[in-house]
Every structure is written in structure tokens, then in C-alpha cells.
Amino acid sequence: MSAENTTPPPNAAQIEYWNKGGGAAWSNYHDLLDRQLGPLGHEAMRVLDLKAGEAVLDIGCGCGQTTFELATRVGPTGSVTGVDISAPMLAIAEARAPHDGAGEIEFRLRDVQTDDLGIGRYDVAFSRFGVMFFSEPTVAFRNIHRALRPDGRLAFVCWQPFSSNPWMREPLEAVRHLLPPSEPPDPLAPGPFAFADPDRVRGILTDAGFTNIDIASFETTLGSGSVDETLAVTLRIGPLGRAVADQPERLPELAGPVRAVLERYLTSNGVQIPASAWIVRALGRQE
């Protein structure tokens, strides 16, 4: 009898995070996060120029908002498959009601880096911040490329560097003196800023077989609504949320300095803090 294979999957750390602490936090605040990140996803959808009847792969679909919006854009003759590694988030997605006139929707628990996505099944691949967490990104994008039809196209949103994103940087800086010292993160490790370098992104996509790669800067302002709503998200999601994930008792102590930062950005439309992302698009073959 052969010994049981106990080798962890390549994305084991991310799978654990998005099925435990990270997935729980995003599930709890998915409405506020969808409000916050919506404008960035809409811009990536805009550059895709989706057509009625197209089949779309939504990578890292989370709690499903982008999947439903994509399904509305491709209409009743189209289809969207939302894939994610987070079972808690997919449970929320599957419980949501589709929009009127939306295309066929399916959700699947899949690791895009390692699982079979099919061959030539999709016209379009899309992601709103779901592609920066692969341990082997080139392998993952080859799998995505394989799943696209020969004339398929890709668009996704990823963050520019941490230093270019006050909405994440300033709250963390306001409480850094209250947190234990930590080593700077590896800029190439899976995480929100793994694709901050556009040259790296271009190289990964080229090696994966994509062509006509365009990486455009998109600057906007983000917020989840009121100061209280944005504070709740900021303390539990992103770099600050990760820094205190195992110290929830510290949240009341940190709330005051973070609130002071958010109040500086309060507008008639709620909190609005500058943010910078890349809108990346590419083709599956040379045009």
C-alpha cells in the first residue's frame, strides 16, 4: 500500500486564509466592500466591451457581485462562471438572487492555478482583485489562457504599489506605532500588491501566451459610505486588517487614530480616499 500523499497544494496558505479568517471577514462585510470596490470593477468591465451572448469566466468572484453584473451585461443568451477558493464567500454568492435579464450563472469552488477550467470554453476572463494571490502566477495564467477561445480576451484590476494607495497606507501609518515591529513583506509574494509592478505583470502574461497587453493607470477615490462603515472595513480588511487579525482585542485602541484619518476624507458622498489601480487587458492571440 502506498503512503498517503500529505504534500500541501501549491496555494495552501491562500486556501486556508480565504476559507478561514480572510473569507469570514470579507463575507461579513461584502456589501460594504462591493460598494467600495465597485468603481474599479466597472472600469475593467468597460474596457472589455462585453457582447450579448458571450461566455465569461469571473476569477476570484468572492461573494458574487461581479458575477451578477457580468451576467447582466452579456444578457439572457450569455453565461458567467464564477470561481473562487473561498467556500464561505461562494455560499453567499449562491444565495443571492440574479438580476432580471441576466445570463446563466454558475459558481464553482476552484483553484485557478491548479484546477481544470476546460479548454476554449470562454470568450472572456475577468477579475476584480482576484489574480494577485497565486503562488505560481504564470502557471495560473496559462490555465486561464487555455480556458479562453482563440479570440478570447482578458481584463482584470490589480493594485498599484502600497505607497500609491492612501486609502490603505494612511490608516496603517496612523497606528503603526501601536503595533509590534514587522518585517517588510516580500513584494513578489502572493498578496494584494503582488502585481504592483506593471513590468512583472506584462512578463507573466507574455509567458502565459497572452498578447496585445495594455496596462493603464486608473485613479479614483474609494470609501464604503459613512465614517463608521468605512472604519469597520478598514480595521478588518486589507493590510491593517491582516496586521491585527490575531489581536481583535486591540481594535478599540486602534479605532480612534484610524477614525481621525477617515474623517479628513469625509465628503457629502461619504468617505472618499484616493486609490490607484492598474486596469490590465490582453488578448489570447496576436491581433
Rank of each mutant, 00 (worst) to 15 (best):
V261F: 03
D100C: 03
A13R: 11
F141G: 08
V56P: 06
P166A: 04
P88G: 05
D100F: 09
K51A: 15
N212Y: 08
I59W: 06
R153Q: 11
T206A: 14
E249D: 15
E287Y: 10
L251K: 12
E229K: 12
G256C: 01
L37T: 04
P150Q: 10
L33F: 06
H145Y: 07
N11M: 05
T138P: 06
E69D: 15
A194H: 07
G120K: 07
L283V: 01
Y17R: 15
P187T: 11
E170H: 03
R242F: 08
P198D: 08
L240N: 00
L40S: 09
G256T: 14
W159I: 01
P161L: 04
K51G: 08
D186M: 04
G223I: 10
F134L: 06
D228S: 14
M89P: 03
A13C: 00
K51M: 12
S224C: 15
N19T: 07
S182E: 10
S217L: 11
V131A: 15
P190A: 07
E287I: 08
Y265V: 08
G60C: 04
E253Q: 14
D34Y: 01
T66Q: 15
H30I: 00
M45D: 05
P39D: 14
W18N: 05
F162I: 01
P239C: 04
G103Q: 11
A208C: 02
R149G: 07
P137M: 10
S224I: 02
R142F: 00
G270D: 11
P9I: 07
R96I: 04
N143T: 05
A260C: 00
G203W: 03
G130E: 10
R108E: 13
M168C: 10
T206Q: 14
D111L: 10
D115L: 08
L266R: 14
A24N: 07
S79Q: 13
F133H: 10
Q36A: 13
R142A: 11
A282G: 09
I279D: 08
P192S: 12
N212K: 09
A174G: 00
E229N: 09
P8D: 00
N5V: 04
G209W: 06
S79A: 15
L32I: 02
I204D: 00
E219M: 06
H99V: 05
A52H: 00
S268K: 13
P239E: 05
L172Q: 06
W26Q: 07
I15Q: 13
L188D: 12
L222F: 03
L70H: 03
P76N: 12
V112P: 04
L48I: 01
G203M: 06
P98Y: 05
T267V: 09
E287Q: 10
V280D: 10
P187Q: 09
G103C: 08
E170S: 04
G256R: 11
A140R: 09
A232T: 09
P8W: 00
V175T: 04
G62N: 02
P76V: 11
G256S: 13
S276Q: 14
R142N: 08
W167E: 05
L251P: 00
D31N: 04
R259H: 06
T7M: 11
P171L: 10
P161E: 05
E287L: 13
A97W: 01
